[in-house]
């Protein structure tokens, strides 16, 4: 399972600080998130700042970044500096 933590407007909008999901990539995670909690669409979530194990996913493989069991993903508001 991947541990997802929400920050900024996401945490307030989802009304939860974390969520656990079985996802194999960031793209997969965002799709599952938008389906399970349709507060934000997949397209909207693509504009969030995403950190995988403390590294901005832009420095990895963006939406194709692979996720493994035990990985930590932060999803932060867009206006948090990319």
């Amino acid at each position: 399972m991947v541990k997802v933590e929400f920050f900024g407007i996401y945490r307030l909008s989802y009304k939860m600080s974390s969520w656990e999901v079985d996802a194999h990539s960031i793209s997969d995670l965002l799709k599952k998130l938008s389906k399970k909690f349709p507060v934000f669409t997949y397209k909207e979530l693509k504009n969030s700042v995403i950190m995988v194990n403390d590294v901005n996913f832009l420095h990895l493989k963006k939406y194709k970044t692979k996720l493994c069991d035990g990985d930590s993903v932060f999803i932060m508001s867009p206006a948090s500096g990319g």
């Binding site: 920050f7 900024g8 407007i9 307030l12 700042v49 950190m51 403390d54 932060f74 932060m76 508001s77 206006a79 948090s80 500096g81």
Partner: peptide
């Protein structure tokens, strides 16, 4: 961001 969370919104980002 500022209306919903105030300047405190920055703290998590600063930490990251």
């Amino acid at each position: 961001q500022l209306p919903m969370l105030g300047t405190g919104a920055l703290l998590s980002v600063m930490n990251q």
